[in-house]
């Protein structure tokens, strides 16, 4: 165990870069789950990984390739209107197939591919951090505008069309925001670490959140807490970051599930055992 690594300034950029994503991705994940489109996270992460590899092959910055691919994926999904998770599954499969073919056939892509799929955060530098901070800023501004229409569309599906308005622009902008976030995050910490930050904290917040605002705070807190623990564990135990983060978040999921079951039993008891099952 290498505890001194925690104080090594070399890891400052990776730490802060990951912190930004650990806060923003869980919050955005809550809106993806609201739309029942959480698979988008994995699809965009995989597709942006393919874009990174393609960019590396032609000697372009791999972050640019990731962003371009993720945005192309978001636009493709927009074209497959209302396809939901089916559209995302197609994007995911395309990204995976291209990634593997590049990995096998182009030696220049191999090193980057391992970083993307193993989930190594420690190579993040100033460029990654700048991208993360820009994404944080854009997300804060965009979600102040997007939150209400996205929630309205889910709670009262024809709220906009009933008044002769279209909600499509909100969905497209959100798709692009998610795609860019996943592209930047995947380039910094890999495919599965990015996906699990979108998926698991939102799942836990859905189970335990008292309301929407509380769920946003809870998702962000779970993301941050799990990230910091995983960062420390991976560094001191000299393990790749991505798998450690996934395991920490899976452990959190188990604990949250247990809490839900215990709360359900307590409520059923308080309800007088009249047979109504409460979460």
């Amino acid at each position: 165990m290498n505890l001194e690594a925690l104080l090594d300034p070399t890891f400052g950029f990776p730490l802060v870069t990951g912190l930004v994503f650990a806060l923003t991705l869980p919050v955005l994940g809550l809106y993806l789950r609201l739309r029942d489109e959480w698979l988008a996270a994995l699809a965009f992460a995989q597709f942006s990984a393919a874009g990174s590899l393609a960019a590396a092959v032609v000697s372009l910055p791999f972050q640019a390739g990731a962003l371009a691919a993720a945005c192309a994926g978001a636009l493709a999904k927009g074209a497959l209107a209302r396809s939901g998770n089916s559209g995302y599954a197609l994007i995911l499969l395309a990204g995976w197939a291209v990634s593997i073919l590049l990995l096998v056939n182009v030696p220049a892509a191999e090193h980057l591919a391992h970083a993307l799929f193993d989930g190594q955060l420690y190579f993040a530098g100033p460029l990654h951090l700048a991208g993360a901070l820009a994404f944080l800023l854009v997300s804060v501004v965009a979600m102040r505008w997007l939150s209400r229409p996205l929630l309205l569309e889910r709670m009262l599906p024809d709220f906009f069309s009933a008044s002769g308005r279209s909600a499509r622009r909100y969905h497209l902008l959100f798709d692009l925001l998610i795609a860019c976030g996943l592209a930047l995050s995947t380039a910094s910490m890999g495919v599965m670490a990015s996906f699990c930050l979108v998926f698991i904290p939102a799942l836990i917040a859905y189970w335990l959140g008292p309301n929407w605002r509380g769920s946003l705070l809870l998702a962000g807190a779970v993301g941050l807490g799990a990230y910091l623990l995983a960062f420390a564990l991976a560094l001191t135990l000299d393990q790749p970051f991505g798998p450690v983060l996934v395991l920490v978040l899976l452990a959190a999921t188990g604990a949250a599930h247990l809490a839900v079951r215990m709360r359900g039993r307590a409520r059923a008891t308080a309800d007088g055992g009249n047979g109504r099952i409460l979460r």
């Binding site: 709670m155 009933a162 929407w212």
Partner: peptide, 21 residues
């Protein structure tokens, strides 16, 4: 400006939205 209340309440599954929200 039109609002539409559907015949059956929307299935909310596990969406953590309160009545006030």
């Amino acid at each position: 400006r039109v609002a539409h209340q559907h015949q059956n309440p929307m299935p909310l599954e596990d969406i953590p939205v309160s009545g006030r929200e």
